[in-house]
Design a protein around this nucleic acid. Sequence first.
DNA 1: CCTGAAAACATCGATAG
DNA 2: CTATCGATGTTTTCAGG
Lengths: 176, 176
Amino acid sequence: MSEFPSTTAAAGPIPTKDVRPAREPVTTDEVDRRILTVLARDARTPNNAVAAEVGVAPSTCLARMRALRDSGVIRGYHADLDPAALGRPLQALVSVRLSSGARGRLRSFTDRIRARPEVRSVYFLAGGDDFLLDVTAVDVADLRDFVVEELSAYPEVASTETNLVFEHVRGTAAGL
Amino acid sequence: MSEFPSTTAAAGPIPTKDVRPAREPVTTDEVDRRILTVLARDARTPNNAVAAEVGVAPSTCLARMRALRDSGVIRGYHADLDPAALGRPLQALVSVRLSSGARGRLRSFTDRIRARPEVRSVYFLAGGDDFLLDVTAVDVADLRDFVVEELSAYPEVASTETNLVFEHVRGTAAGL
DNA sequence: CCTGAAAACATCGATAG
DNA sequence: CTATCGATGTTTTCAGG
């Protein structure tokens, strides 16, 4: 089994049937893309509203949405929560480098890490660092605790580097 | 006016009414958090089902969801698309450093950048680099084109550093 | 791909704890 | 603040053309 089974994956207990990780492109037409654009902008847009916006019948739109979901083009639908509004006003990017002997346990290590409430997402990297964590924190002490006690405490971790995030904005095109 | 008006922001033409950026925490109780957990996992869960899952009446659930949306705790709902399935199998993180004189034009520069289809998100950083781009590409040539022609071509850009992303996974807790 | 009809759901106001 | 009820319009869903 590969160390990196897919280019990307969705979160936690997914509302998923049997979505394949999609190593190869799925054929999509203009209608599909317009559906995706609408759902990327507002995932709670009712099916019939999506249909009206892209100019197809609701039944057709529904079938397409399901196909896109089942084929893995749509990985899931997620509410975008504001960490600051939830009492986590600090955001940071933490680069982590593992000791060379620990690379084999990378997966189990990151599985533990990504379940933590601080962690928004994990990037597995090809470069000098092994991975990058997008994290939020209640305050600097909380951030320090996470880095020092949750990361650096493990012998697998060779080094970390923390960069504060002033602001994080989504791309406008959202993957299209 | 501040250079960084909010800690985070949502994408493009948002389906938003007047959601404030939420600099301060919003008071939420256990019911709210459970609603948020459900919606973070599957944003298309019907109000009915959310209500049943968290154990409140649908009317109550609906009112809370709206309050959470209006107070800015929920920034939006987005379909999570798989770039690989859409013909963009390459993902990378590009760190960008601007020339010191160009920092004042940072906002207009990044506004142009983030509208590009390659850009999934933009992190404004406090450290040595000015910002970090999460980008996808069709192939290496496409990636190179973006970095060389879209970034390095501008005099504002002092330097860039590109790191390939093997895999990107969402945190399990999704912001709670 | 569409239409159409039945079932499920969202939404509101009134009422009450 | 929360829950329940009932009425009304909308949305989803599926059978079939």
